[in-house]
Design a protein around this nucleic acid. Structure first.
Length: 585
RNA sequence: GGUCCAGUAGCUCAGCUGGAUAGAGCAACAGACUUCUAAUCUGUAGGUCCCAGGUUCGAAUCCUGGCUGGAUCACCA
């Protein structure tokens, strides 16, 4: 039983008895006591002054006396100004530790029965993934894991932007310049290979544009438009080329996803969804949700939601982005019967998603009350934005390789795992490198823009992924050294807790609510910040307290159990960030 | 111009629904490995929480107005 619930309930009944005022348990302000004061939990008593008609200090004294007498778990208190600091008795903690250690579900919440679709990544098929995609993918993956840990069923999906003028550009360039070259023959990864021809297109177009009047179209661009027309007319030759080149890109993406440790449950392709949604418009017109202008275009009036008027169908009857998204949402509901959907998309589309959600609501879609746009800020480089034209794009595969290489170099200097087999060492470099990269990307609040410095590669000390992994590794090291069957002592008999030990338990106790909050806010950074703090308390604990050479068998049993529990929470929390834990490093 | 978001230490960032003397990490400086892995720990130094008002016992946090930066407001996707 979480001791904060006990305190809340007891404060409510104390206030009722002493001052005859009725409060709800969640209106009680209860915080962990700040480090500079004595105590474990602090009740803020200012809010009771009205009902009690007494000074805050007097209320604190009365409440403190009442609670210490009535509540077994509370062993003492002190009052400073309007703050009542309560001390939890040491014998509570041993019992608490055993109870959570026995609970296999401590790190997750019970099932909600809800199914939620999470859409992320959603790449174009004309160039490789870059740093911006990495943030998107990691956020999407982590958000999915967090929603799952909060008891939801999650369907991970991406919508692949596989049609349109951009892919035709690569196709035209390949036809003209490749001489039949393929990823296999060139030794290039498929997405990089196609990206190369996208660049070739841009170079050629630039060349052709020289000497042309402003507004005049280049020959290669005209050819590209013609190809798009053929694609739309289902020209078999064009479609074959299109499938071939997209196939190359997909196999490249697959590799990148694999090295990031992510996958999708379902893929949607824009080539299959871009015509959806028109039926919704027709029905919405009948129901008066949309209106038609004289030129035949269809709009929705969202002024009462402060969103202005928005086009949903062109005058020539063709779809816009919004039409397609409406159709895709409905199709997903037909496919999966979900209770909600989360879109991981950059914050430049905030307006689009506000409008989309508002329209879905007005259409009465059953999942419309549970839609969320996980909006994230752009990833910037220290010297400005990433611009593909200026070649300042940070390639995803390069970055991953660089980070792992950096870890390898660093690890060799340390020499700690030099004796391990080559395969195991490579696996460790991979886990630690990705851990560093993922943690760095996920620890900042998604909605804020972030600066990423690839030149400094990725930090390995301090507030980093490896710092947390190292805490886990140290725990594993203790378990390895533990001699089997030499300790039958009861951890609950250990009742003179070191401040670090109490601190760890107090903090572990906060994990469930942290998880719930991260889920409610769709915010992996809350998990990252939590896990860093937990690791930091554990490192301090290991520095000051001996586990294997504890002063008593009870102390040793308690510390082992505590260390294992810390390890469990660290591992579970890092799993939510998509980061693996090495056994040694 | 309208809307949305951000502004906290030299740098990168925490700070939850208003609570005590605003916190970490990096970088700098000074220390701690015959000890369960020093990818660790301890200390020093570093602040006009963008500005000005307001709300109240109390504001980095809420409200109003401004300043700065970003995004967006297409019959583009």
């Amino acid at each position: 039983m979480d001791v904060t619930h006990i305190i809340r309930e007891q404060v409510v009944s104390a206030v009722k008895k002493l001052y005859d005022a009725t409060l709800s348990t969640d209106s009680i302000l209860l915080n962990p006591t700040r480090k500079e004061f004595e105590g474990d939990y602090t009740v803020v008593v200012f809010p009771f002054t009205k009902a009690a008609r007494k000074k805050p200090e007097a209320i604190g004294e009365e409440l403190g006396n009442y609670l210490t007498e009535q509540v077994d778990e509370i062993s003492g208190f002190n009052v400073i100004k309007g703050f009542l600091n309560l001390t939890i008795s040491d014998h509570f903690w041993g019992k608490y530790l055993l109870s959570i250690a026995k609970n296999p579900d401590f790190c997750k919440h019970p099932a909600t029965g809800k199914k939620i679709i999470v859409e992320f990544s959603s790449p174009n098929t004309n160039k490789p993934l870059h740093l911006g995609h990495i943030r998107n993918i990691l956020l999407g993956w982590s958000c999915s894991k967090i929603l799952e840990a909060n008891g939801n069923t999650v369907v991970k999906t991406q919508i692949v932007n596989d049609r349109g003028i951009h892919i035709c550009k690569s196709m035209v360039a390949w036809e003209r310049f490749a001489n039949g070259e393929t990823p296999e023959s060139s030794g290039l990864k498929g997405d990089h290979f196609v990206g190369k021809y996208y660049v070739a297109f841009n170079n050629e177009e630039k060349k052709q544009a020289e000497g042309l009047e402003e507004g005049q179209e280049t020959e290669i661009m005209t050819a590209t438009r013609a190809m798009l027309k053929k694609w739309e007319a289902n020209d078999p030759e064009v479609k074959t080329l299109w499938s071939k080149m997209n196939g190359w890109v997909y196999s490249g993406f697959e590799q990148t996803y694999k090295s990031l440790g992510v996958h999708f449950d379902v893929n949607y392709y824009e080539s299959e969804t871009y015509l959806l949604g028109k039926g919704i418009i027709d029905k919405g017109l009948e129901d008066g949700i949309f209106y038609k202008k004289e030129d035949g275009s269809v709009w929705i009036d969202l002024e009462d939601a402060k969103l202005d008027h928005k086009l949903v169908l062109r005058s020539d009857g063709t779809s816009v982005y919004m039409t397609q998204d409406l159709g895709t949402a409905r199709k997903r509901n037909e496919d999966h019967q979900m209770q909600g959907m989360t879109y991981v998309v950059g914050d430049e589309q905030n307006y689009h998603f506000k409008v989309l959600f508002e329209i879905l609501k007005r259409l009465g879609e059953p999942y419309a009350e549970n839609l969320h746009h996980l909006s994230y800020g752009m990833v910037g480089l220290p010297d400005g934005k990433m611009k593909s034209r200026e070649g300042t794009v940070v390639d995803a595969d390069d970055l991953i390789a660089e980070v792992i290489g950096e870890v390898e170099k660093d690890s060799k200097e340390r020499g700690e795992i030099e004796g391990a087999p080559e395969a195991e060492r490579r696996e460790i470099f991979r886990m630690v490198g990705l851990g560093a990269l993922k943690y760095q990307m996920l620890k900042v609040d998604p909605k804020k823009g972030m600066i990423f410095n690839p030149a400094e590669s990725v930090a390995l000390q301090g507030d980093t992924g490896p710092y947390v992994q190292f805490a886990y590794v140290r725990m594993q090291g203790i378990l390895r050294k533990l001699e089997k069957g030499d300790n039958n002592a009861d951890p609950a008999k250990y009742t003179s807790l070191h401040p670090h030990e109490k601190n760890l338990l107090l903090f572990i106790q906060q994990y469930p609510e942290t998880l719930a909050r991260a889920g409610a806010n769709f915010d992996p950074s809350e998990i990252a910040n939590y896990v860093f703090e937990l690791a930091s308390y554990f490192h301090k604990f290991l520095h000051d307290v001996k586990v294997l050479k504890a002063e008593s068998e009870e102390a040793k049993a308690f510390r082992l159990e505590l260390s294992k529990m810390v390890g469990r929470v660290l591992e579970a929390a890092f799993d939510l960030l998509g980061i693996e834990m090495p056994e040694r490093m």
